[in-house]
């Protein structure tokens, strides 16, 4: 990718992220017609991502406890995603970190924690 294309991509990414943050900051998904999970609507069971939109709204307003209540997996994911993104950007400087973060241990942990979270949250109604 050329330098200009990369720059344009970064600018687009920042604009989209800013728009999403502004949207979720302005409206509470709990009281507005935001997309509702199809899996939940059809089966009555929560998917691993259910509550992410309400949690995002709560985080932007600094209410971490409420966000945790809506979707604890999202709160846990934020530091993990930040570390993953950092390891990707600083791949050449910290190759060991990148290989570990994209290695089998981390990926299978994410997989089984997600499946486990999916099951457990429906049993205990988290």
């Amino acid at each position: 990718m050329t330098r200009n294309a990369k720059f344009a991509l970064y600018v687009c990414g920042i604009v989209v992220i800013a728009a999403i943050l502004l949207l979720y900051a302005s409206f509470d998904p709990a009281h507005n017609p935001f997309p509702r999970c199809i899996f939940l609507s059809l089966s009555g069971l929560k998917c691993p991502g259910c509550g992410s939109q309400r949690a995002l709204h709560a985080i932007i307003h600094g209410n971490i406890m409420q966000a945790w209540h809506h979707n604890a997996a999202l709160i846990v994911s934020i530091p993990l995603l930040a570390l993953l993104a950092f390891s990707g950007v600083a791949k050449n400087r910290f190759p060991t970190l990148y290989n570990y973060m994209n290695g089998r241990i981390v990926i299978w942990s994410v997989f089984f924690l997600t499946i486990g979270w999916w099951i457990v949250r429906n049993i205990f109604n988290w």
């Binding site: 997309p35 999970c37 199809i38 899996f39 939940l40 998917c47 691993p48 991502g49 259910c50 992410s52 939109q53 979707n71 997996a73 999202l74 994911s77 993990l80 995603l81 993953l84 993104a85 990707g88 973060m101 994209n102 981390v106 990926i107 994410v110 997989f111 997600t114 499946i115």
Partner: peptide, 17 residues
């Protein structure tokens, strides 16, 4: 992996698995 996790959290479609 980042995109897998993000799509799973926000797309509500379990194919991210």
């Amino acid at each position: 992996l980042v995109w897998s996790i993000l799509t799973m959290l926000f797309c509500c479609v379990p194919t991210g698995i």
